[in-house]
């Protein structure tokens, strides 16, 4: 069962107030759940739908449109690895493969210890620091294998 905490409820109330129509609060609410739970379960979609008078199908249709919402539990750290043109030209493909191997999730996915989830992502608008990756909210730019080692190893 998914329930909003009372803290959530407060936030949600504020979010809904920002918009002329309730429906507009859908993305912020999805983001709220994604941040807290690491993914959005069917139960959460139903709960969000109830809050906003939307059918759960509609919630799922919006949610499934965006790659940054996850439908499966994710690790503590979500690594979004840019592989778009600027990063690719600067070696992102190799570095992505390296990171996958290092974490034991070639091609992306969640590590067994649930610490990391690795995903390819399209341009994250940090081309000048290419190649780059985003871990949770932090951008890490001008990556090299060494730098990746250092960053990943330093994460608690």
């Amino acid at each position: 069962m998914f329930v909003f905490t009372s803290e959530d409820e407060n936030k949600i109330e504020k979010i809904i107030k920002k918009y002329p129509v309730k429906q507009s609060a859908l993305l912020p609410l999805l983001t709220l759940v994604q941040r807290r739970e690491g993914y959005i379960s069917p139960e959460a979609m139903q709960a969000i739908g109830k809050k906003l008078d939307l059918s759960p199908g509609y919630v799922q249709s919006v949610m499934s449109f965006y790659t940054m919402y996850h439908t499966e539990p994710t690790g503590k750290y979500i690594i979004l690895f840019c592989h778009n043109i600027s990063c690719q030209l600067n070696g992102a493909d190799n570095l992505f493969a390296y990171t996958g191997q290092k974490l034991g999730v070639s091609g992306g996915g969640t590590t067994e210890d649930k610490k990391f989830t690795l995903h390819k992502e399209e341009c994250l608008a940090a081309c000048c620091g290419a190649p780059m990756m985003r871990i949770n909210d932090i951008f890490h730019e001008n990556l090299t294998k060494e730098k990746i080692d250092q960053i990943l190893d330093s994460l608690p």
Partner: peptide, 18 residues
């Protein structure tokens, strides 16, 4: 809104909640 479009782009498909 029981029947909806899920996913995006070439992978979109007509479906239902869960």
């Amino acid at each position: 809104s029981a029947l909806v479009m899920l996913n995006r782009g070439f992978n979109n498909e007509v479906g239902t909640f869960n």
